[in-house]
Write a protein that binds this DNA or RNA. Sequence first.
DNA 1: CGGCATCCTCCCCGATACTG
DNA 2: CAGTATCGGGGAGGATGCCG
Lengths: 121, 121
Amino acid sequence: MLNPDPFQAQCPTRVILDRIADKWTVLLLTAVAERPTRFNALRRRVEGVSQKVLSQTLKSLERDGLVTRHAYPTVPVTVEYAITPLGASLERTLAPLAHWASEHIDQIAKAQAQFDGRKAA
Amino acid sequence: MLNPDPFQAQCPTRVILDRIADKWTVLLLTAVAERPTRFNALRRRVEGVSQKVLSQTLKSLERDGLVTRHAYPTVPVTVEYAITPLGASLERTLAPLAHWASEHIDQIAKAQAQFDGRKAA
DNA sequence: CGGCATCCTCCCCGATACTG
DNA sequence: CAGTATCGGGGAGGATGCCG
């Protein structure tokens, strides 16, 4: 069993955090959770993600069992990514963060302005 | 008002995610939320964080109004970091992630092993 | 359409040394 | 004790080109 202390390197919290705390993972998990989506549709949906990073991120999401990848033998090939039950449960625990963000973004901006103002003064 | 679509670059979700989705921010927020803590105590509590990155991360947490920094004029100086109400509310929305992590870490490990097994085969 | 390979750049982060 | 300054490596991630 892993060390449960959330501040030790090998505890579950740290391991999960190291996996999802990057620029795109949470965003893509959320996007795929909405509905099954094809590669390029995902690329258009999530503004700013490059093809390479999208591919990489989806692959590690697949590896972790959070999304599935299904290739249909059409011409040209169609690839659809979908959420798994495991991924959906993670997405549900992350969803409140989006709500928190919209409700508190103004407070953050205000705090930053105050902090920067004190520095300049 | 900011764009509420969570997949556009300037929406609150993206802004917040860009701020907290790094290696140490969530961890330090959680640690400080437990109790007010001094710099070196924090450093010992959170295994593996370097002095420089701890200092940087605390400063940006302070800038965002998520933690406070209070210096006591002792000799040598004592500096204590504490959570703010804003920081506490963020920490509460992040806390379920730690629970999710301990409950599902085994499933993730299993999915990874299966994925890697298929690749090798 | 959905990738992989390659190259390259930036900046995150660690190590070390020094300061009030 | 609580930082700042400096240096440097490595990896994340962007741009481009090619392929099934």
